[in-house]
Nucleic acid binder design. Structure first.
Lengths: 229, 229
DNA sequence: GAGTGGTCTAGACCACTCG
DNA sequence: GAGTGGTCTAGACCACTCA
């Protein structure tokens, strides 16, 4: 009596081995249930899990087909800067550079989904690994959504960690790009002229309202992102 | 009679709203089943789906807890270069620069999981968007795993697309980084001195054997990666 | 209309692991 | 030992959608 996971694995092997090619129709659940000597519910569980992972597409009446992959999903795990540094065995330090209420520039205002003349909390700070600048953080926090941020100094805890404690389950969108360091990045990251930086931008929402927008710049020779699996 | 998806949504709302904070124990399945007027199996389905998505952790006897998020998963969809360019409304062109059997350099040999003096197929080619260089592809193909590649000229089809047709269900690992363009990148991507590039490296396996390793370089001002959801 | 997947219930047994 | 989740079966009804 196979479990749904065992069934899933058998089916996945048939897909990976090419026995069932992209576009092919899989046998209906009832038929597979008979083959495996189990119930249709169990086969259904197995096939749903394959569909969740994007290997097959299912439509009522039309049946289950192997997906033609023209795309590839890559999962990235983004950690708190401090953990990232400490887990690589390096010493972490944090430095607040500036903090104040300001009216964000046009581009940031758009990211914050702002209505007219919103003021936001603007924080610039640095994260060090073994004493060397690792990441420059340039952040805007929407005080309408997280008013408590207005009374936090961020002198000992980075906004990164603070926000995660206050707003644990927000959604986020990330952008990754390469650029030549601008003057602020050069100064704080201790870079020479024409040196490249790796930049992550993240916008975070809760309930459709923008919580924060942040730009994280790294010296290119000390930073890379690797996918998992 | 709520469906498991409806139950899932209610539970997720309680987590997102902070009613159940990270670390909190959720009620046992039997109790929730009573609350929702459904069976334990249905509640189980809902909670498993929350566990799949990383919102809760479940252990027998210990129960189900809201996960403390110190990390954030971001999903990236990597498309075939051609699709990426065409879907942005630009014209795609492809140019093969070189192709030959070679012994890969040390670093690539390690990536290919190579045993001693393996020869691999080395291909360099360019992808254009609206006539401008968009991506330089520098690829090594393991001929032990994909011998058919040895008799493909790659003059009209890029290795990218060819491999996807031949080896649809491999696994991959990606690395993203920023760098200053090297001489080859400067020449083919038409870049000035000291210009940054965004580099994607990908290694692909089938059944634990390395299929291919590729380095994809982009002019930084024309490329970024955005996560989905 | 008929074939396919989507889901539920009721009852059951098992597997793990905490205290 | 006992509480919790993991999973199966048997039967059922429904929802979609293709021909």
């Amino acid at each position: 009596m196979p479990t749904y996971k065992e069934i899933r694995n058998v089916l996945l092997d048939r897909i990976k081995s090419g026995e069932w090619r992209p576009g092919n129709l899989l046998p209906p659940e009832a038929e597979l249930a008979e083959e495996f000597g189990s119930t249709r519910v169990t086969v259904n569980r197995a096939m749903q899990s394959l569909a969740d992972d994007g290997f097959v597409e299912r439509r009522r009446k039309a049946g289950t087909r192997v997906v033609q992959r023209t795309e590839r999903d890559a999962l990235i795990r983004i950690r708190i800067v401090r953990d990232e540094i400490e887990q690589s065995g390096r010493r972490y330090n944090y430095l607040l550079i500036s903090r104040g209420r300001e009216r964000p520039p046009q581009r940031i205002q758009a990211e914050l989904g702002a209505s007219g003349d919103l003021e936001a909390l603007h924080i610039v700070c640095l994260h060090f690994a073994d004493g060397r600048p690792f990441q420059l953080e340039n952040r805007w926090i929407n005080l309408d959504v997280v008013p408590q941020a207005g009374s936090e100094s961020f002198e000992t805890i980075s906004p990164n960690e603070w926000l995660l404690q206050k707003v644990p389950y927000s959604n986020a969108e990330h952008t990754f790009r390469a650029a030549t360091a601008d003057s602020e990045e050069k100064e704080h990251l201790d870079l020479g002229p024409n040196e490249p930086v790796f930049v992550i931008e993240r916008t975070t929402w809760l309930d459709g309202r923008t919580v924060t927008h942040v730009m994280l710049s790294h010296p290119a020779d000390d930073f890379r992102i690797v996918t998992r699996d």
